[in-house]
Amino acid sequence: MTLLEFKDLHVTYRGSRGRLPAVRGVDLRVDAGETLGIAGESGCGKSTLAMAVLRLLPKSAEVSGEILLDGEDLLKMGWGRLRAVRWTGASIVFQGAMHSLNAVQRIGRQIAEPILVHEAKTTPAAAAKRAEALLERVGLPPSRARSFPHELSGGQRQRVMIAMALACDPDLIIADEATTALDVMVQAQVLRLISDLVTERGVGLVMISHDLSVLSAVCDRAAVMYAGRIVEEGPAHEVFAHARHPYSAALGAAFPVIGDPAARMNPGGLAGDPPDPARLPQGCSFRPRCAVAVERCGAESPELLEVGSARVSACFVAQEGMPVVL
């Protein structure tokens, strides 16, 4: 059953430099209980995509297309209905938990807040009890409910964010760079916690990260974004092990293989910068950095087409069945 579906989603920021397209026609779906990873470098539009789901983008963003949550278009909802869907239909684990928590409010109160907002019958005492239970579920002592955010470590704060995201039993959780700021050990603990919760509660998970190892550890499927578009999508392990788009291949090569000295000394970088969204190149937007580009790439923009079982790629070379790595 489809839980979340983007249909031809466009997000354009109006700014002093004119109109900047951040998301340019994204089609994507997440089934109930499924985990989808979205990968891409900074500025590719993946956070914009996450914020668009609950309509949290600034006023300067123009959004068009459809975002269907349980079949209901979020972009057409009235404010009252939208507020009711926020946190009960989908919740977000934000990046940078220090700033995403209110510094002058005890964390118990912050976790209990959405419960009180959405469930009129719940008393503050009952909500506080549930907040403590949630803290316990994410591996923190319930007494932590009385702490302020600055009294916790980075990993503990991220656990608080996860407990908060679970407060109203949403069907979908969006984790936006949820483990990026954490050190590797804590990151592994938090990732295991997220995977456990996903299996335990059967929620859908959209995990956004630039770290492929994180995504392949947690996700069933993965999509790779470049310059506001999905360039490849398929089973997570397949996408990262056998990329069918030169950009996914470069992203994978940027991480050294543990135990392989050659890879450690020479992580494969990708020359050049992502394109300026105000001046996108003609044809395929990845062409200026692409090692396998052919003549056709400069003329037309490739569509996402099937390149194998349950896999799509927006690369002419891959669609011809040729290797995308030199």
Binding site: M51, L56, R83, A84, F94
Partner: peptide, 17 residues
């Protein structure tokens, strides 16, 4: 522009809340 205000909005609070 603070992130904690985005969190509060995402939780479904009204603007004045």
């Amino acid at each position: 522009g603070s992130d904690y205000l985005t969190t509060a909005r995402a939780k479904g609070l009204r603007d004045d809340e």
